[in-house]
Amino acid sequence: MIQLRNIKKAYKTEFTSLQVLKGIDLIIEEGEFVSIMGSSGSGKSTLLNILGILDDYDEGTYTLAGELMKNLSEKQAAYYRNRFIGFVFQSFNLLNFKTAVENVALPLYYQKVNRDQRLEKAMHYLEMVGLKDWSDHHPNQLSGGQQQRVAIARAMVTEPKVLLADEPTGALDSTTSHEVMNLFQEIHQNGKTVVLVTHEQDIAEKTERIINIQDGLILNSNE
């Protein structure tokens, strides 16, 4: 599903160049449940952003579902983000002026799905995350865990090829974290490829494979 070959990425400023990724080789098969672990500054979030086509890379090749993700135009990038990827953020990133169901439906708007179908599908995914009764609430009326579940529903609504999550439990307490992880597990059991980034060992242990990353290089990837 995901194939990375010698991915390098540097953040350049006028005088300095910070090499964040120094040559990542990685293969993630379809249906895998993988966590990427590493300390802050190890490059794990950068790697996830590249996987999510939210950032570009300098060298190497990234193939997603058989398509080469390189030198994409803004329009192509938007297309692949919308069709191939569901992204869950640490800080939820919901639109506060929209209700839960409208937030979930938003990616479908960019697929030109009409409003009724959008909302119907969004309701279905809200039900999946157990928030059907909260569909009319705005994000600021929901708890952190509920917000993250809305965000997961939003990531799933387009039926993406992979679900990417950047520290999805970073802003949640341990009980809520546990619930969210159960949700990811459920999604994985339905056959979805799930990749999440975390620095918490107990979160990572809930996945099937842990990839340790340090100083821009993969240390090991134990099964």
Binding site: K75, A78, N93, P107
Partner: peptide
């Protein structure tokens, strides 16, 4: 700006 970032992450084109 933040809203624009979220919309883009969800698949909005710059043109839209």
């Amino acid at each position: 700006t933040k809203e624009i970032g979220i919309r883009k992450a969800l698949g909005a084109t710059p043109r839209s």
